[in-house]
Design a protein around this nucleic acid. Structure first.
Lengths: 188, 188
DNA sequence: CCCTTTTCACCTAGGTGGTAAGAT
DNA sequence: ATCTTACCACCTAGGTGAAAAGGG
C-alpha cells in the first residue's frame, strides 16, 4: 500500500467519517521485523491532530484553506489491533492490516470507533507495545513501546469528498467502489 | 442453538464435508461461567469417532445401517477458537461461537480444517484450557483443562445429505439457504 | 450402484460513492 | 452557503443446497 498512500498524499488524502463509522482507504498496513518471536506484543493506533486549524475547501482554486481555530478536540481514542496480544512471531509472519479500524464524527459513539472532527487534519500513529512479564513492569513502561508515524498517511477528515481527483483515485483503487468505474482503466 | 441441535438430533444430524471445507450448521456455541476473569484460557474443539463403523443410508426405510468396519481414522486435528488465548472475562462476556470451524474429507488438507471420514459418526468435544503462568506449569497440565461433550451435537459426516428431512430442516433454519425455501413457513 | 466432485443460482453480510434532503 | 445525514444501487466476499457429471 506504500505507493498508493503516496499517490493519495500528493493530491491531499481525504478520509470519510460517518456516524456509523467508515473504514480508511487505503488501509493502514505494516510489516514488522526485529520483534522477539516468543514475547507478547500489543499493536495499536491513534490519531494526532496535525495543527490547531479548521479547514474549508475552495472549489474555484481546488485547494484547502485554513478557516479558523480547531473545534474542541474529540475524545482521544485508541484502536487496538484485534489480534492483540500476540507473539512477535505471529505479528512478523505476515503484513499486519488495520482494516477493522473505523472513523466516526459521532462524539457519542459507543462502538469504540476513532472519533475525529470533520474538516480537520490528522496524522495516524502506530504503536508497538511489549507486554513485559516482569512483576514490576510498570517501572519500565516508558521503554516498553515504540511509536511510528508515516507522513504520507496524513489526511483530512471529511463527511463528503471535496477534491474530485481524490474521489476518482478512491474509485479507481478501492475494490468496493468498482460500481462507479466507467471505462476500463487498468486497476491501480 | 440448544433446541435447534435437539431438533436435528431427533432426525439424525448430518454435516456436509467438502474438499474445501464446510462450516457446521447448527454452529457449535457455548456460554461460559465460573472462569477466573483475569486468567488466560485457550478454547478448542476436536471430534471423536462415535464407533468403529462405516454407515450407509437405506432410502427405502429412511434409516442408517452399519456397513462394515470404519475406514482408517483421519489425522486427528484440533480447532483452536481464533480468539485464543483470551482472558476469562472476555470469554464470559458473550456466547462463544465456533463459526470459523470447517469440516473436510480431504486427508491432505493444508488449511487446518478438521478432517473427517464421510459416512462415519462423530461426537464434537469442547475443551477449556487454563494457561498456567507458573514456571513448572507442565507438572499441572493434567488438571489445567476441562472437556465437555454434548450428546445432542453428534452427527453423521456426509458428502451429500441423505435424509430429506435433514435437508428440509437445514433449509428452514440456515439463513444462507434461504434461497431454497418455497412457502412462507415461519423461520425456525 | 453408491458415493464424491464440480459448478451454479441464490442468498447473507457488509464496504463503496452518488444523490437529494436536512441542518446550521 | 456550507456541511451533514439518510438512503440507495452496486460492488466484494463468502455461505447455501441443487443438479449434473465423475469415479470406483
Amino acid at each position: 500500500m506504500g505507493s498508493l498512500w503516496e499517490e493519495f498524499n500528493r493530491l491531499g488524502t481525504e478520509m470519510i467519517v460517518t456516524k456509523a463509522g467508515r473504514r480508511m482507504f487505503p488501509t493502514f498496513q505494516v510489516k514488522l521485523s526485529g520483534l522477539d518471536p516468543l514475547a507478547d506484543y500489543v499493536l495499536l493506533m491513534d490519531f494526532v491532530p496535525l495543527d490547531d486549524k479548521r479547514y474549508r475547501y475552495a472549489f474555484h482554486s481546488s485547494s484547502w484553506l485554513a478557516a479558523g481555530r480547531a473545534d474542541p478536540a474529540a475524545p482521544g481514542r485508541v484502536h487496538f489491533h484485534p489480534d492483540s496480544p500476540a507473539k512477535g512471531a505471529q505479528w512478523m509472519r505476515q503484513i499486519v492490516s488495520f482494516d477493522k479500524l473505523k472513523l466516526t464524527n459521532n462524539l457519542l459513539d459507543d462502538n469504540g470507533h476513532i472519533i475525529l472532527n470533520s474538516m480537520h487534519r490528522y496524522q495516524p500513529r502506530f504503536h508497538v507495545v511489549f507486554v513485559d512479564p516482569r512483576r514490576d513492569s510498570e517501572r519500565f513502561a516508558h521503554q516498553n513501546f515504540k511509536s511510528f508515524s508515516f507522513p504520507e498517511t496524513q489526511f483530512m477528515a471529511v463527511t463528503a469528498y471535496q477534491n474530485h481527483r481524490i474521489t476518482q483515485l478512491k474509485i479507481a483503487s478501492n475494490p468496493f467502489a468498482k460500481g462507479f468505474r466507467d471505462g476500463d482503466p487498468e486497476p491501480w
